[in-house]
């Protein structure tokens, strides 16, 4: 009887403890719940770039893709652009692509910005923020590293501080 009571108490306490632990865990990860998860397939999308060319993510299978979400009004985005630009040129012949998704801005504003920074990589326009919603992006900037199988390898939130970080990213998704 004494033993039985101990078992009942232990079970009840474990149940309560598990409920509390789950609540705490869920609360602390709620901000990190992303539509897109590391290790899972990146959602496909089709967007048109500044030159009118269509880019579909699934067409890049077999090669690595650095997918960057940005906007011209976003200062941290502006700062990381030159790094992306020079690393893009270094890696474009090694099977790593850079696709920069501009979120909700006009062609004129974006192409003017692109010209100012002489950006070489394709910039696609997500005018009605469909792709941004599909990727659950907030806030900008955010960078997704997608490997040759189309799976997300890493999600980098916020500004990329140094060019070396971009190199490291490129190496990770080099096919």
């Amino acid at each position: 009887m004494k033993k039985q009571r101990l078992i009942i108490r232990t079970v009840i306490l474990l149940l309560l403890g598990a409920a509390v632990a789950y609540t705490l865990y869920a609360n602390f990860t709620k901000d990190e719940v992303q539509k897109v998860e590391v290790g899972k397939k990146a959602p496909d999308f089709v967007l048109t770039d500044l030159n009118g060319e269509k880019h579909q993510l699934s067409d890049y299978e077999g090669e690595g893709v650095l997918l960057n979400f940005w906007a011209t009004w976003c200062k941290p985005c502006e700062k990381e652009m030159p790094f992306l630009n020079s690393q893009y040129q270094a890696y474009k012949d090694q099977g790593v692509h850079v696709i920069a998704v501009n979120v909700g801005e006009s062609q004129v504003a974006v192409s003017d910005f692109s010209k100012r920074y002489d950006l070489q990589f394709p910039i696609v326009l997500d005018k009605d923020t469909q792709v941004m919603t599909a990727y659950g992006v907030d806030p900008l900037p955010i960078t997704f590293l997608i490997d040759k199988q189309g799976n997300v390898v890493e999600i980098h939130k916020g500004q990329i501080i140094a060019e070396a970080d971009v190199t490291e990213m490129m190496e990770k998704i080099k096919p």
């Binding site: 011209t72 009004w73 979120v103 909700g104 801005e105 006009s106 004129v108 504003a109 003017d112």
Partner: peptide
């Protein structure tokens, strides 16, 4: 050039605060 939410940036060039 087009700046939807125009202001002068720290470097004195026109920039936009938002879209």
């Amino acid at each position: 050039s087009y700046f939807p939410d125009f202001e002068f940036g720290d470097d004195g060039n026109p920039t936009t605060k938002s879209k």
